[in-house]
């Protein structure tokens, strides 16, 4: 009898929602998360990391910095550096409300992000998002889809993806905004009732990613719409997206908040 099968399967599969924040073991040891710079280890005049970077995310010189909005987290810079002046940590907490807060410089510098802007307070317990893929390669979309699954269970935080922009509180955009999708994206944004927010997920959505400078794409959502939350990565780990959403909804435990307050 199939209901017996279903119940048996459920017993076998068990309850699998991960607590948030989860145990660090959930993340692979080779995961490339928040980059940390130690400029005192640099050799004067060395540009190895900047030259290895495919998108020009690294600035060397007096105040070296790496822009996470451009970063593809490929690790080429860390591999090119012989002095380990740039390493990728296991910290997945990288989201930021303002674009400039995505620029990481010295290891112990804190970027002052304002606490959850007033706009987000309305959505503290109920946030309905409409996802728009504007040229995304499907990896960011897949990681967003995965947030709805058992292990991450976005629904328990009151966040849900809806079918119609009229039902939504905001847009979750992926992709560099290809020219062919620009009009559709604008129309979708116009259909979202106020107050509304826009979240840019992934390097492409923040800056164009590998497609930066292409005439076929607009170079990120920021070129088309006002962005309220940036989530870097290529693609961002589901934890990065979840952490960003929860922090901005004011649901993260301050004890575990990242250095990016």
């Amino acid at each position: 009898m199939s209901i017996a099968n279903i119940l048996a399967a459920r017993i076998k599969q068990g309850h699998r929602t991960l607590p948030f924040p989860p145990d660090q073991s959930v993340i692979s040891d080779r995961y490339r998360g928040l980059p940390r710079l130690s400029p005192d280890r640099c050799v004067a005049g060395c540009r190895a990391c900047a030259e290895a970077c495919p998108t020009g995310a690294i600035r060397v010189g007096d105040a070296p910095a790496i822009d996470m909005g451009l970063c593809l987290f490929c690790g080429e810079c860390a591999a090119a550096c012989e002095r380990q002046a740039i390493v990728f940590s296991q910290d997945y907490r990288m989201a930021a409300c303002s674009r400039s807060d995505l620029v990481v410089d010295r290891e112990d510098r804190r970027a002052a992000t304002s606490s959850a802007p007033v706009k987000w307070r309305l959505f503290r317990r109920s946030l309905k998002l409409r996802q728009v893929s504007a040229g995304g390669c499907n990896a960011c979309e897949a990681d967003i889809n995965v947030l709805g699954t058992l292990a991450w269970d976005l629904g328990r935080f009151g966040v849900q993806f809806v079918a119609s922009p009229r039902h939504a509180d905001g847009l979750l955009v992926t992709g560099p905004v290809s020219r062919n999708m620009e009009l559709a994206l604008r129309k979708t944004y116009d259909a979202v009732p106020e107050p509304r927010i826009v979240i840019a997920v992934g390097a492409c959505a923040i800056s164009g990613g590998p497609y930066m400078g292409h005439e076929e794409a607009r170079g990120g959502v920021g070129a088309v719409l006002p962005v309220d939350l940036h989530i870097p990565g290529c693609p961002p780990h589901p934890l990065t997206i979840l952490d960003g959403l929860l922090r901005v909804m004011g649901k993260s435990d301050p004890q575990t908040a990242s250095p990016f307050r």
Binding site: G135, S178, R179, N180, Y211, H214
Partner: peptide, 10 residues
């Protein structure tokens, strides 16, 4: 064609 980003040109 909505996702066209110019990969081959790149």
């Amino acid at each position: 064609g909505y996702q066209h980003r110019g990969v081959e040109r790149g």
